[in-house]
């Protein structure tokens, strides 16, 4: 398995304007920006793998809890009703809005779970470079799915729903709401400490040694 050699891996093309440039050596916690459009090209993150691993394990636990305990309860005229995240999906499904139910399930449960699982597997796999090619495939899925993981938006939605219903009945915030609140911070921290450039540099290439990075640049 070829390692990308140091000379070539400092060559980057800005994702937002395609300007070809060399990454200068960056001190830990420093970052490099595109000379033309100021897109952030790289942020050098310290101890990325260990920190990501710790946060991903914690996030996995919280996601599990958030999906198994009640999130929101309602008390009216002596009756109480509780719902969970999945309960919301089921209500939409039952009322004939299957497309919406699937979208909510995907953005509130599946994508976050996949985001966490992908990062867990990737940070474990790349500890001994070169990591197998499936680590690269997972990392790619992570990059694509990340914007569809919408825990923070769902939490705001739950808050608005709570206020809306509070005019009609007594609302009881459930444990899952607080767990989701903590999860929002954990997911943000996880994305902030993970260094995709570092992880990619440790992944084995799908094409063997035959293809080399371009010799371009000046």
């Amino acid at each position: 398995m070829p390692e990308p050699n140091a000379r070539d891996s400092s060559l980057v093309a800005c994702p937002d304007c395609d300007l070809l440039q060399h990454l200068p050596p960056i001190p830990p916690a420093g970052s490099a920006h595109c000379a033309r459009c100021h897109a952030r090209l790289w942020r050098h993150k310290v101890d990325s793998l260990n920190r990501t691993l710790a946060l991903a394990v914690a996030a996995a636990f919280l996601l599990l809890i958030a999906n198994s305990v009640p999130m929101l309860g309602l008390a009216v005229a002596g009756r109480e009703a509780f719902t969970t995240v999945i309960g919301g999906v089921l209500a939409m499904w039952r009322d004939g809005r299957q497309e919406v139910a699937i979208l909510v399930l995907f953005t509130a449960v599946i994508a976050p779970a996949f985001e966490i699982a992908c990062l867990l597997a990737v940070v474990l796999a790349v500890r001994r470079p070169p990591a197998p090619a499936w680590a690269g495939r997972l990392l790619r899925a992570y990059e694509i799915l990340r914007e569809w993981s919408m825990i923070e938006i769902m939490l705001l939605g739950v808050l608005v729903a709570l206020i809306k219903i509070a005019e009609l009945a007594t609302v009881i915030p459930g444990l899952a709401m607080f767990v989701l609140g903590a999860l929002v911070f954990l997911l943000a921290a996880m994305a902030a400490v993970f260094d995709p450039r570092d992880a990619w540099a440790r992944v084995g290439w799908v094409a063997g040694a035959s293809t080399r990075p371009g010799e371009g640049g000046r």
């Binding site: 309960g87 919301g88 999906v89 009322d95 909510v104 729903a161 809306k164």
Partner: peptide, 10 residues
């Protein structure tokens, strides 16, 4: 979408 989902569920 989330607001409507949880209002309906509850």
């Amino acid at each position: 979408v989330f607001v409507d989902t949880f209002v309906v569920a509850l």
